[in-house]
Amino acid sequence: MDVKKAERTVMDAQEINRALTRVAHEISERSRGVANVALVGIRSGGVHLANRLVARLKEIEGTTVPVGTLDITLYRDDLNARKEQPVLRKTEIPFDITDLKIILVDDVLFTGRTIRAAMDGLMDLGRPAEIQLAVLVDRGHRQLPIKATYVGKNLPTALEETVEVFLDETGGPDRVAILS
């Protein structure tokens, strides 16, 4: 039975826009510029957000920071429990991450399991000087001791609700919604 879930918008395009601008400023403030900073978007929700942050950082700092894409499928902790293997996509990080400050970017921070997998995946690619985490939405309910460095919006949710991020790049329009 596939009942259409009720959708409640919690962030509109302008709020997403402002949140990303603030996060970009926080990134440049925390690192005093963007030297040695690189962004890595987690597939698939983090990829477009990482690209948007790169554009914002360019406006603020005048330099284009390197950006890559990480697929965490091979590092998931639920591969044995699933009926079907998830579709594997490519990790594309066209620079050496060793000694860089890597900022992982994802859309929603939930249990923390994705971030654990992403950190393990990154460590297999090199030895970054530091890993930070930027998310558009932190919805709580962590199952691992993981905390975001930059948060677009803290969003209290019930466990059974679903948080969905829609972006223009994937059909949009830009909004964050809670489905319940």
Binding site: D71, T73, L74, L88, R89, K90, T91, D124, L125, G126
Partner: peptide
């Protein structure tokens, strides 16, 4: 294709 990328890594 994804696994070819893995084989090209140091680890």
């Amino acid at each position: 294709e994804s696994f070819k990328e893995v084989s090209g890594r140091d680890i």
